[in-house]
């Protein structure tokens, strides 16, 4: 059943902007991204937005829909009441480029700061052996599609301080660090950097990131908390501290 729906879409750029209203026909089964495309084709050819796969696999169409960070391609229109006005705006944590497109380059800069994967040598027969139960956790983290919804919702990054000082990499990159730290083949030690450079201590486990993750990764419980524990074991375990004092 086709219905006419009301969309309020933020239009503008770094200099400012505001909401523009659109009345648009919506058909059965549509997601928000379909509606935005229809608006783009019929009413606003230059409406800027990012998308790629349209199946929740690439993490491009991140935006805030009725105030919630979401992927537009995975937000079905029938999840809203028929009379509800849908408000769409760009991610709040990152600077606006145009309309629904934000400058997420800060995230790419963080990724580059993380020391690369350093594997141990291969087994004598040339293979690497790892067991499925040992890689399940790492695979969970590697499901991340880099939509940056977790970065968007994280209040440490939202208040800009963490971003501007580069003191906190945010949930996405903490789980990337966790995926490297828990990788059975990796030999590098990133634990001092996790504390000192990447700011594991600044996360106070409100789990907002986990709530918005479209891949349902347990970012806080399975990634950030174990990293914090490793930091604590290394630097704050009294017995280990004593041992280090005695044996250097």
């Amino acid at each position: 059943m086709a219905t006419t729906r009301t969309f309020r879409i933020w239009r503008g750029d770094a200099r400012g902007g505001g909401f523009e209203q659109f009345e648009i026909q919506v058909d059965e089964g549509m997601v928000v991204l379909d509606v935005l495309h229809r608006i783009q084709a019929q009413q606003a050819n230059d409406l800027a937005l990012r998308w790629n796969c349209k199946a929740g696999k690439c993490g491009s169409c991140s935006m805030e829909i009725n105030g919630k960070p979401k992927l537009a391609c995975m937000t079905r229109m029938n999840s809203f009441a028929e009379s509800e006005t849908i408000t769409v705006q760009p991610l709040k944590t990152f600077p606006v480029m145009k309309d629904l497109v934000t400058d997420v380059s800060w995230n790419y800069a963080q990724n580059k700061r993380i020391p690369k994967f350093q594997p141990r040598p291969r087994d004598p027969d040339g293979a690497y052996r790892m067991y499925q139960e040992d890689v399940d956790r790492v695979q969970e983290f590697r499901k991340c599609i880099e939509c940056y919804l977790c970065q968007d919702v994280c209040h440490v990054l939202r208040d800009r301080h963490g971003r501007e000082q580069n003191t906190f990499v945010g949930p996405r990159f903490l789980i990337r660090l966790a995926s490297l730290e828990m990788h059975p083949l990796d030999t590098a030690d990133r634990i001092p950097a996790v504390r000192d450079e990447f700011g594991s201590g600044m996360c106070n486990i409100t789990k907002c990131c986990t709530e918005v993750c479209p891949e349902h990764i347990h970012i806080t419980d399975n990634g950030i908390i174990p990293l914090k524990e490793r930091v604590v074991d290394r630097f704050y375990d009294p017995i280990a501290m004593l041992m280090r004092k005695i044996f250097g």
Partner: peptide
């Protein structure tokens, strides 16, 4: 494929760990 593994890819494993 082996090269990707050396660069950090984590493929699903056989019972033997391959």
């Amino acid at each position: 494929v082996h090269e990707l593994e050396e660069w950090g890819a984590v493929f699903d494993r056989t019972k033997e760990g391959l």
